[in-house]
């Protein structure tokens, strides 16, 4: 048995994302007190797979630029629009602009989609574990699953501090189990994601097993990947995207 291994490549098509494109902000939706979704029109968007990210750049009048990587929240569709959901990071240079200055009609620059490692083409059963805004690339997978009416199994465990901090709360369905770490609705336990959440999903694994996708802080990623391994998930079928 392999004790540790890096998972294989997922084909994402040959397009290189070397070109910066202008994206126009068309809509801002508040998700939680800390997070909002920003819808962007990108006319030349090459298309993406759920789970991929992009690089986004803001430029000041003196030419100073700041760029960050952000996961794409929307499912792939032909609309020429993509959505990003951003936490407001304290002193965040780029997220701060989005949360305090940005309004529809503003333009930014994007480059992508990037990286195939964390992509889910919809071709294999997917077990998604996220915390905080780590749910963003996983939601692209859930939305894709629904939009295409896919029948391949997909389950999501998502950790949030409280119901108020749970991003996309109104959109989550029976595929999702939320875990609340600080406060929960009456009758729902409070606590960290645990073996009791993960083990039943592994016991009920679909034919061929799960491809696991973990996204969140490094601390969450370490914790969640240990839970998966303890429950019997093969280590070379755990894909991790850590904030940073």
């Amino acid at each position: 048995m392999t004790r540790f291994a890096v998972p294989g490549r997922i084909a994402v098509g040959g397009q290189t994302a070397s070109r910066w494109q202008t994206a126009t902000l068309t809509e801002i939706r508040r998700e939680t007190p800390r997070a909002a979704t920003f819808r962007l029109a990108v006319p030349g968007w090459a298309g993406h797979l759920p789970g991929q990210h992009l690089m986004l750049r803001l430029t000041a009048p003196d030419g100073y630029a700041a760029q960050r990587h952000y996961s794409i929240a929307s499912a792939p569709d032909p609309s020429g629009h993509i959505e990003l959901t951003l936490d407001r990071v304290p002193d965040g240079e780029v997220s701060g602009w989005f949360h305090t200055v940005a309004r529809p009609g503003d333009t930014v620059e994007v480059r992508g989609p990037l990286s195939g490692f964390f992509a889910w083409p919809g071709d294999r059963p997917a077990l998604l574990l996220g915390a905080g805004s780590g749910v963003v690339p996983l939601m692209s997978m859930v939305r894709h699953h629904r939009a295409r009416g896919l029948t391949v199994p997909l389950r999501m465990l998502v950790s949030a501090r409280s119901p108020e901090q749970l991003i996309y709360a109104s959109e989550l369905g029976p595929e999702t189990t939320p875990v609340f770490t600080r406060s929960a609705p009456p009758g729902v336990p409070v606590g960290r994601m645990a073996a009791a959440h993960v083990a039943p999903l592994l016991a009920d694994r679909p034919e061929g097993g799960w491809e696991a996708y973990v996204c969140g802080s490094n601390a969450f990623a370490e914790h969640a990947s240990r839970l998966l391994i303890a429950a019997g998930q093969p280590v070379d079928r755990i894909r991790i995207e850590r904030f940073g």
């Binding site: 803001l58 430029t59 000041a60 009048p61 030419g63 100073y64 700041a66 200055v101 333009t107």
Partner: peptide
């Protein structure tokens, strides 16, 4: 150059050790 309305960014520090597009 594609200037972003209202974006000023962090205070500029002259740091010759910082490659293009990077932050400290």
């Amino acid at each position: 150059m594609n200037v972003t309305r209202g974006f000023t960014g962090r205070p500029r520090v002259h740091n010759p050790g910082l490659p293009p597009g990077q932050y400290d």
